[in-house]
């Protein structure tokens, strides 16, 4: 490797900051737009940016999930939903100042709450003293997975991930059971044509 580790860190931090700023811009754009097609496409862009942030943070498989779910499936599902509901958001009847105030106050409290936490990637933080060294030193040996994030997700928390998958699977089955009964297609089309005539 030609690049030193310090310049590498600077590059990664700079990229993360730029990407997060772009994500903020995309989110504001989403909130301000009334054309829902544009909103869905912007949310896909947002997911791709998020996935890239995950890559920069070296969590490759989380990035994979984000790209597959956020940018892939969600976009398709949201377009399907727009097809059923119509593509323009109606203007709000009243100006939502009170909800905005509540949200800003809650956000400010949450940010205030994080002030007491140790700084991001502070090596002296309790979480890095307690289990992280064990994952880092023993993880590759015990699990045989070279990436630490993947080792924790797929091996140390394997049952946890299995449970999550099970929940998502059950939810999917529930949705299919509720919505998946197709009405017969031909009679519907015929009735539509008849109504046109």
């Amino acid at each position: 490797m030609a690049t030193g580790s310090r310049s590498e860190i600077i590059l990664e931090e700079l990229t993360a900051v730029v990407l997060l700023t772009l994500m903020g811009a995309a989110a504001i754009g989403m909130a301000r737009q009334r054309n829902l097609y544009g909103v869905v496409l912007l949310s896909g862009i947002y997911s791709f940016l998020m996935a890239t942030v995950m890559v920069v943070l070296d969590a490759v498989d989380v990035a994979m999930t984000e790209a597959a779910v956020g940018a892939g499936i969600s976009t398709v599902l949201l377009f399907g939903a727009i097809h059923l509901t119509g593509g323009t958001e109606s203007k709000p009847i009243h100006r939502p100042w009170l909800p905005l105030l509540v949200v800003v106050a809650t956000g400010a409290m949450l940010v205030y709450g994080t002030l007491g936490l140790p700084a991001f990637s502070d090596p002296g933080a309790p979480i890095h003293q307690h289990v992280a060294p064990r994952y880092l030193t023993e993880g590759p040996v015990k699990t045989g997975v070279p990436n630490v994030v993947t080792a924790v997700l797929a091996s140390y928390r394997g049952f946890d991930t299995l449970g999550e998958t099970f929940v998502v699977f059950t939810a999917g089955i529930g949705v299919i059971a509720l919505l998946g009964r197709r009405r017969p297609r031909r009679p519907l089309d015929k009735s539509r044509e008849e109504s046109k005539e």
């Binding site: 730029v18 990407l19 772009l22 811009a25 995309a26 754009g29 054309n35 097609y37 544009g38 496409l41 912007l42 896909g44 862009i45 791709f48 940016l49 996935a51 890239t52 790209a67 940018a71």
Partner: peptide
């Protein structure tokens, strides 16, 4: 990426935005 996001935010038609989204995926 910045330029693409500008196009996605300003883009007058949905197709501009779709193209910007596709290109953002490529850049990612």
């Amino acid at each position: 990426l910045c330029l693409l996001l500008v196009r996605a935010l300003l883009g007058p038609t949905v197709f501009d935005r779709a193209l910007a989204g596709n290109a953002v995926g490529t850049v990612a």
